[in-house]
């Protein structure tokens, strides 16, 4: 390690502070907004001194959007539940399908394996809207439109390639000899997969699952087109804040805070695994 001069340390501190300010300020501002009424938010010049109110949060949780002129019903809490359910279920399905597939692509060389893997990845290249139009028609004919099952299925377009390609890399990093050794010791293929491959790729699978969850959570366009009000996640549900009588900035801010909370908590909790997972390749056991 090079020794760092005090001057450099100070410069670094300033640089990091600037970066953090740049990225964190909007979030900080949203937090502030979520405790203000529309009136204080829209005053010019803006001020960070105001009388905090919980009315935005109360409105969201009770489902009664109270504006200056009217009272409107919103289903933010059910949207939040939809987001949670859709993302969790999508990731669970994605893991069940993606992890064994990733193992197959990593370990078995079969005809066209690279092509299939690439095709799956290519789902991420196509603009979602391009897929959505025909999909909408199919879904309506198949009766999948506006169902959780249909949405979870479509979410696989986001989740599956991500899990497949990340986890495949982790499986490939496990020396094949370690698995051979377990087989030769007398264990079946399936036992070897469970006791050797899965635990060793564990951090990678956790990292992939977390990323997939965040991507699924943030998805907007699939749910916008394929789901109606009762199945919509928060990303789509937030549109309800733009009302005829104006944009409810305070409630939007509170909604944002509530909707980033789960992913934020999950990321904090899984950070350890993420870092471990992403650096696993460098320090092989």
């Amino acid at each position: 390690m090079n020794t760092i001069s005090p001057f450099e340390t100070v410069l670094r501190g300033i640089a990091i502070t600037l970066v953090i300010l740049f990225f964190m300020f909007p979030i900080f501002w949203i937090v502030l907004m979520s405790f203000q009424t529309n009136a204080t938010i829209l005053q010019v010049p803006p001020s960070i001194f105001f009388e905090p109110t919980l009315q935005n949060y109360r409105g969201l949780i009770t489902g009664q959007l109270v504006t200056d002129t009217s009272s409107l019903e919103i289903r933010f809490m059910s949207n939040l539940f939809n987001s949670l359910f859709l993302s969790t279920a999508s990731v669970a399905v994605g893991l069940m399908l993606g992890v064994p597939a990733a193992y197959a692509f990593a370990r078995l060389k079969f005809r066209g394996s690279e092509d299939i893997a690439f095709t799956l990845l290519s789902f991420r290249f196509a603009p979602p809207l391009l897929v959505l139009l025909p999909l909408t028609i199919y879904f309506q004919q198949l009766g999948l439109a506006n169902t959780y099952g249909g949405l979870i299925w479509v979410y696989q377009l986001i989740v599956l390639p991500l899990i497949l390609w990340i986890v495949r890399g982790y499986f490939e990093d496990i020396p094949a000899d370690i698995e051979y050794a377990y087989r030769i010791a007398g264990h079946r293929w399936w036992t070897t997969f469970r006791k050797i491959a899965l635990p060793l790729a564990g951090p990678g699978i956790a990292a992939a699952a977390l990323l997939a969850f965040i991507f699924a959570w943030n998805n907007f366009v699939f749910a916008l087109v394929l789901a109606s009000a009762d199945k919509q996640p928060v990303t789509v549900g937030a549109l309800a804040f733009i009302t005829a009588s104006g944009v409810q900035y305070g409630q939007i801010a509170a909604g944002i805070i509530l909707s980033i909370a789960p992913t934020f908590a999950l990321a904090l909790y899984a950070q350890r695994y993420l870092v471990e997972g992403l650096s696993l390749g460098a320090v092989k056991g």
């Binding site: 000899d177 370690i178 050794a181 030769i184 007398g186 264990h187 079946r188």
Partner: peptide
């Protein structure tokens, strides 16, 4: 015949121990 059914013991050059 699968490796697990051959009644073999093997020591690998790179040891191939189970790291976990």
């Amino acid at each position: 015949v699968e490796p697990e059914d051959r009644g073999i013991g093997m020591a690998f050059q790179n040891f191939a121990l189970f790291p976990h």
